[in-house]
Amino acid sequence: MLGIEDKWVSIAYILCIVSALLCLVWGIIKWNKDDPESESEEDVRKWAEEEDRVEEEL
């Protein structure tokens, strides 16, 4: 198929395209879906402040 001799290689070629399309369709369907379990504001604040400190050390 497609000038490729071994079917295992043709399958890989096609799977690359199919999996990229799967990612595309998935993204479109889930575009606005969010996580039902959201984290507390306090956790996020603490994390973000510490992250800034880590970056500063670099």
């Binding site: 990229a20 990612c23 595309l24 993204g27 575009w31 969010d34």
Partner: peptide, 18 residues
């Protein structure tokens, strides 16, 4: 910021890697 952004990154990432 949220899981929504992870989902949205999937299509762009998939095509980029391909």
């Amino acid at each position: 910021k949220s899981n929504k952004e992870l989902n949205r990154a999937i299509p762009i990432g998939g095509i980029f890697i391909m």
